[in-house]
Design a protein around this nucleic acid. Structure first.
Lengths: 144, 144
DNA sequence: TCAATTGTTGACCATCTTTATCAACAATAT
DNA sequence: ATATTGTTGATAAAGATGGTCAACAATTGA
């Protein structure tokens, strides 16, 4: 039941951009360093985020990426689904036709409930929420 | 975020045993046929279930497996965790020491919440619940 | 006791997914 | 112009997944 690095790195990359928003464009190199992600791999993850408008990019010297939407309007669920596909723990939850047993299978219903529980959490947290949580965590650590 | 066939097949196999409980021992071959799982692969999945006492087995002619615990006392979560390991979407949720960033990372907290939400669902459903749900589904289909 | 039957286990392997890496290219600021 | 920075297509190592097989152990019943 693991989330892959794409979803994890992607979320962290967006968070990094959101945190650095005030200073203008954020370079991939900077994100890669701060989040300890290979720059080459990060490129793979940023691409779909740009394509779908979560980020906007500018090439050339002093180029970089910035948020393409307000952080309050980006749900973590959207990011995960973009980078990993459906969150459904089994395919039959999204498409019963893949399993001949689907409509008479009690376990399929259960997996559907698991999916809904996960969705509820991930729908309830926006990038802005993550920013605030992150700032609070850093404050708490500094105060200690 | 997929659950692997081990967890899925294992759950279905236990359900099949629970449903056939009254007729005594259930053969692997029977489970494999009913659930459309390769017998060879099913052996792989049954083994840990026997080892951990979810099932008890008898070899030889007219042998088979039976539930080793009352279905009301088997939570789906236990089955999944046995067959797939922790349900945590990322490792750092269970063991913060794997990530140097863990204690100052807002996303790690979020993955923890996802885990808890899934646990809540899977802790709340026992094998007996699945049996009842399954019977109801079959009744509903028959009545239609 | 023997033979048939059924679960157990260790070894094996093809395929797919994950996690990258690199080089060539496109755009842009100075 | 040229250096810089994002984009994209090709490639691939490593690990997980899903499955198979054969030898073996236990048990039943004739």
């Amino acid at each position: 039941m693991k989330i892959s690095t794409k979803g994890r790195y992607g979320t962290r990359a967006l968070l990094e951009v959101a945190l650095s928003q005030d200073e203008g464009l954020v370079q991939l190199k900077y994100i890669a360093e701060r989040q300890q992600i290979s720059l080459y791999y990060l490129e793979r993850i940023i691409a779909p985020l740009v394509r779908e408008g979560f980020l906007v990019s500018t090439r050339g010297p002093s180029g970089g990426v910035a948020l393409g939407r307000r952080p309050e309007d980006i749900k973590v669920r959207e990011v995960i689904e973009l980078l990993e596909g459906s969150i459904a723990p089994v395919e039959c939850v999204d498409d019963p036709s893949v399993c001949p047993r689907a409509d008479s299978c009690a376990t399929c219903d259960l997996w559907g409930e698991v999916k809904e529980a996960m969705e509820e959490v991930l729908d309830g947290v926006t990038l802005q929420d993550l920013v605030e949580r992150q700032k609070k965590k850093l404050r708490d650590i500094a105060a200690k």
